[in-house]
Design a binder for these strands. Structure first.
Lengths: 132, 132
DNA sequence: CAGTATCCAGATCGATACTG
DNA sequence: CAGTATCGATCTGGATACTG
């Protein structure tokens, strides 16, 4: 197997991006890692229907109101979810996953599953490393 | 299409993990997103041969010595790269990608390519959002 | 050469309190 | 109900200086 071919396509593609596009790509990858984005998206996808702010907050256990608000705004800004406001009293706001958001989840899932499946490998690697 | 099936496997798998395993899984996903890990791994993979610290630093443009050291240690700890020290003066240290590291890159690549290909979608989404 | 040590700026996130 | 505002602890990463 030729190691140099792994990720080569990604590197080539990366080189073809402008600085701005590259920064945005990084940004999207980074989004994966922040504490609540992926979880929030998966809740909206799993529900398959619009969800109010408070329902999302219930399902994303442990998130603070502030962090959830920020997470939802970022996801909305990037076109991964939609936010619909109803002019009612008390106010109602509904969040839904978009087609782009679903696409993103689909492309993340294989990687995520692989990591979870290999969790034992990482545990032993760390044990070996720490016990040296 | 049934939205509720997207990412469902990941959620199920996630539920089956212990708290410790779940934390580790998050950790690995987070590793992806930090500023230099993916880039560093892709450099080692693309080279396909052991690389000295200073060579890695040249190719991962913009990384500081401190950040590169930290990145390399984390990757080593997780079994994604190896670090070989030669008892010479001046000291020589060589880094290589592992099979596990290559596997990880292979599972990340599709997602990464998808993001890069959709960079225009994200740009217009942001432009729409900001101009409202 | 390949780090370590120290300092510092900025971002992140939770807790808490307040509001249209 | 769905936020915003503020504070503080914690983390991240860069710059700089020093060392086996």
């Amino acid at each position: 197997m030729d190691k140099s071919q792994v990720f080569a396509a990604a590197i080539d593609l990366c080189d073809s991006l402008t600085e701005e596009e590259d920064a945005l790509t990084r940004d999207m990858v980074t989004r994966l890692a922040d504490k609540w984005s992926l979880w929030t998206m998966s809740v909206l996808a799993a529900t398959g229907a619009p969800l109010r702010f408070s329902r999302v907050m219930e399902q994303v256990e442990g998130v603070s109101q502030k962090s959830l608000t920020k997470t939802l705004r970022q996801l909305e800004r990037d076109g991964l979810i939609t936010r619909k406001i109803f002019a009612e009293v008390p106010p109602r706001v509904e969040y839904s996953i978009t087609a782009l958001g679903l696409e993103m989840l689909r492309h993340v899932e294989p990687f995520y599953l692989w990591v979870a499946k290999n969790v034992a490998n990482f545990q032993t690697a760390r044990a070996d490393f720490d016990g040296r």
